[in-house]
Design a protein around this nucleic acid. Structure first.
Lengths: 194, 194
DNA sequence: ACCTGAACACCGTTCAAGT
DNA sequence: ACCTGAACACCGTTCAAGT
């Protein structure tokens, strides 16, 4: 959503944008890419990178911010188009995909859960999750008991898992397990999975 | 268990032991302590550290290896003394405590789940978890469906959580949730929690 | 065999000087 | 205001020389 970005001078804004874009590509190739190399590739002084992103995590979060924003924006759209439980499941699918393709999102979100200074990222995610959970409760698809944060923690395997091993079926199985634990009927869960 | 340590020359063994001991103290103070500083504090050349532990993770794993060994050894002892479900719960308690006091264990185990070269650590943990799960299944306390690795992933919040916020009640609540999902009766779970 | 420790390339971070 | 980029202290890692 409107991420309250203070208005920057146009050159500063351009630098910021280019840094995030270059970082996205660089981190996809090598998650441990150095900040100096990213600054250089962006045609920018090291100090400029550091001015915009005081530490590595903040840069990583900025990179995946758009993806997270998309995820956040997706929740109400899915709820408008699908029954609640199906909306929740489709959202989890996208969450898993995001965690898999660019596995940096996992580290960024994992950090966000514990570190204070990136709560700005975690907050909207929590809100989006909350919408989905609430809708499922209202429709009677799931029981109360588990809140949005609980859910995000329980399904952390979705966004923190690497594309290694054949963990895809495991992910689905564990997600189904969690949903059944939340009161979703066996049939409801099973029929939602393609 | 017997960690198949190839016999080293006595000075090499002494160096290894001192490195692990020094690393344990240094990492407790600062989880990002440099390897060079650890080598120096151990009164050993940097190359010696590197010879014993080719990368940082392997040193970290070695440090928490004893704790993990204890955890592994604890499983059969608990099963001998307590009913299966209670043994599982007590083991989870110790797991959470280990993850909390020295939170490096979380990073080490998290790495172990995905990285191949530390499977030596993850394997025994999996075996220990398997014993507990099997016993609970045999006694009818829980249903099949979820294997040892599933369980370790599902309760990863126990060992990966920081001592931040009052996540202790959350941890207990989520553990209870998982156990109920595995078929443990409400009463059984509730009465086990002190 | 094993260890030492200087050396190397590179890291994150800072800050005086520019525009 | 914002940027540059040389500079600093320090990092992980290597490897010739020692014992």
């Amino acid at each position: 959503m409107s991420s309250v970005e203070a208005k920057l001078r146009s050159d500063a804004q351009a630098n910021r944008d280019r840094l995030v874009e270059v970082a996205r590509e660089a981190l996809a190739v090598d998650p441990a890419a150095s900040l100096n190399s990213i600054a250089k590739a962006a045609g920018v002084g090291a100090g400029t990178l550091y001015r915009h992103f005081p530490n590595r995590d903040l840069l990583v979060v900025a990179v995946y911010r758009k993806e997270i924003d998309d995820l956040v924006a997706l929740a109400p759209r899915l709820l408008a188009k699908h029954p609640p439980l199906q909306a929740l499941l489709r959202w989890c699918d996208r969450l898993a995909k995001a965690g898999k393709t660019k596995h940096g999102i996992g580290a960024a979100l994992a950090a966000a859960v514990t570190e204070e200074d990136v709560q700005a990222t975690y907050g909207p995610m929590l809100a989006a999750t909350g919408q989905l959970i609430s809708a499922c409760r209202a429709s009677g698809d799931i029981r109360a008991e588990i809140d949005a944060q609980d859910f995000l923690i329980l399904v952390s395997f979705l966004w923190k898992s690497r594309p290694d091993s054949a963990g895809d079926t495991r992910g689905r199985r564990l997600l189904a397990f969690v949903l059944r634990g939340m009161g979703a009927s066996d049939e409801a869960v099973r029929e939602q999975f393609p």
